[in-house]
Structure formats: structure tokens, C-alpha cells
């Protein structure tokens, strides 16, 4: 065969959307959406220009944070945040365990399964902030409302992952224990618990980390913690104090991340 008979050009065949008409329609659709979406942004450039100076001050505040002048507020916010984080994680995880077990299809009866799954769904669908708004309205301002918010959010997170985990456990081990004539409690204790315990500890530590981060936010709507301090600092245009608070938050998150990965290795 002579070399001349081979094609001289090659085009990569489409991988996902194979029909060229659909492909073009999709591309045109994306472009139209982007044009429409971008046109809705209404930017007041003079305001942005004026804001640049403030932005610069914020960056300077970040580089030269002021820990001292508002230290009393910062430390109080931090203490609230940290205590709120720990108590809400403990309570949230404690409540999540029965709900998580109840939401696992392979070990819970049908009606319990339905109830537990709907609790999880409600807790996951609502933003922490929205829950916080309601709880602040009910329980008054302060960290107690924050504690309730984070506990509630923890339930949705931990119970869901725990239930999914239990549903994925090795069924042969459960059968083996059940075949010895063990009761339901004994099955959970001997066959389920050993398989999901390491994951549960890992998830709880991860949630501790998330709860701390969230505790820095819910203060904005009055649920106590470092978020309230931060909100005040930004409202007063005290960017050096705001920078200090953000740096503290970042540092604690970093410490928590390294600490929890270390702790997880240690516990396994």
C-alpha cells in the first residue's frame, strides 16, 4: 500500500455529546446564558473606585493585623466560638448515632427508616444561617442559639454519612454474627460497630472543624461567637482588627486540620 492512500488529516471525535446538532445547540445556549447572566451585573464603577482605597486598607490590615486594641472582644468571641464548637459537636454526634442507625436500610425497620431519613433531609436542606435566624428569634441572642444551630446541622451531616456507611458494611460479617443467635443489639455491637467506628471518629473530627468554621459565620445573624466580633469590626471599618480575626480563624482551622489527621492516625 502506498503512503498516499492514507488520510492526511484527523479530527478528534466528540466524546460526550456525539450529535453535532446538539453540540452546537449546547454551545449557543451556553453563550446566550453567559451574555444574559453577565448583563444582569450592575456595577457602580465610581463606587468600586472609591472602595479600592478601603480594599487597600483591608489588605494592609491583613498584613499588619491589630490583635491588641480589640483583644477583649476577640478573646470573648473566640471562647464562645470554641465552646460552642465542642459542645455542639458532642451533642450533635450523640444524637446522630441513633438516627444514623435508624436511617440504615439494612438494620432498621421500615417506619423508623422513613422517620430518620426525613429528619436528615430537613437538617441538610436548610442552611445553617437560616436555622440560626429562627433559633435566635426563639432563644434570644447569644451562643446558646448558635450551639443549637450547629448541633442541628451536625445531625444532618453525621447521621447521613453514618447511615450510608452502615448500609455499605460487609453483609457476611453481619450474617456470621446473626447466625450465632445474637440479638439485634448484639449484632449492632459486634458486627456493625467495629466496621464503622473508625470512620465515625474521623467524621466527628471533620465535623468539629466544620463547626468551628461555621461558628465564625452564624454570629453575623446574632448567634454569638467570633462571627459577631468580626461583623462589628467590619461595620466599624476596623480592618486591622478584622484581619487579625480572620488570621486567627485560618490558624485555628489549620491547626484543627493537622491535629485531626494526626489524631485519626493515632486512634487507628
Amino acid at each position: 500500500m502506498s503512503a498516499q492512500s492514507y488520510p492526511t488529516s484527523w479530527k478528534r471525535p466528540a466524546q460526550i455529546v456525539k450529535d453535532p446538532r446538539w453540540r452546537i445547540a449546547l454551545q449557543v445556549g451556553i453563550v446566550i446564558y453567559l451574555i444574559l447572566a453577565i448583563s444582569t451585573i450592575d456595577v457602580n464603577w465610581t463606587r468600586v473606585y472609591e472602595g479600592l482605597e478601603r480594599g487597600q486598607r483591608f489588605i494592609m490590615g491583613f498584613l499588619q493585623p491589630d490583635f491588641t486594641s480589640r483583644w477583649r472582644d476577640i478573646s470573648q468571641g473566640l471562647v464562645e466560638s470554641l465552646t460552642m464548637t465542642l459542645t455542639s459537636t458532642v451533642v450533635g454526634v450523640a444524637i446522630s448515632i441513633p438516627i444514623g442507625i435508624g436511617a440504615a436500610r439494612n438494620i432498621a425497620p421500615g417506619w423508623i427508616y422513613a422517620i430518620c431519613r426525613s429528619i436528615i433531609a430537613v437538617s441538610r436542606a436548610l442552611q445553617e444561617i437560616i436555622i440560626a435566624i429562627f433559633l435566635v428569634a426563639m432563644f434570644g441572642f447569644g451562643p446558646f442559639a448558635g450551639f443549637l444551630t450547629l448541633s442541628f446541622a451536625t445531625i444532618g451531616f453525621i447521621a447521613k454519612l453514618l447511615a450510608d456507611d452502615i448500609e455499605e458494611i460487609d453483609a457476611t460479617q453481619v450474617e456470621a454474627i446473626r447466625s450465632t443467635g445474637a440479638s439485634w443489639w448484639q449484632v449492632v455491637n459486634y458486627a456493625v460497630q467495629p466496621q464503622v467506628m473508625p470512620r465515625l471518629i474521623g467524621l466527628s473530627l471533620y465535623r468539629l472543624d466544620i463547626n468551628f468554621r461555621e461558628s465564625a459565620v452564624i454570629g453575623i445573624v446574632g448567634a454569638g461567637g467570633i462571627g459577631a466580633t468580626l461583623n462589628t469590626a467590619i461595620d466599624r471599618y476596623e480592618y486591622d482588627s478584622a484581619g487579625a480575626i480572620l488570621l486567627i480563624v485560618i490558624a485555628i482551622v489549620m491547626v484543627a486540620e493537622y491535629g485531626s489527621s494526626y489524631l485519626r492516625k493515632f486512634l487507628q
Binding site: 450592575d42 457602580n44 463606587r47 468580626l230 467590619i234 471599618y237 478584622a242 485560618i250 482551622v253
Partner: peptide, 25 residues
């Protein structure tokens, strides 16, 4: 990566509203 992950979108928004003004941007 850590800095962006530790600061919630609401806090970023709080800062940005103060800096570039309220709005979609």
C-alpha cells in the same frame, strides 16, 4: 487553599460589600 476554605462565603461577602459596595458583583 486553606485561607479560602476557612473563610465562609458570607464573610467574604461581608468584606466585599464593604469594599466594592452592595450588589451582584
Amino acid at each position: 487553599i486553606v485561607a479560602s476554605r476557612s473563610i465562609n462565603a458570607l464573610i467574604w461577602a461581608l468584606l466585599l460589600v464593604a469594599i466594592i459596595g452592595p450588589g451582584l458583583l
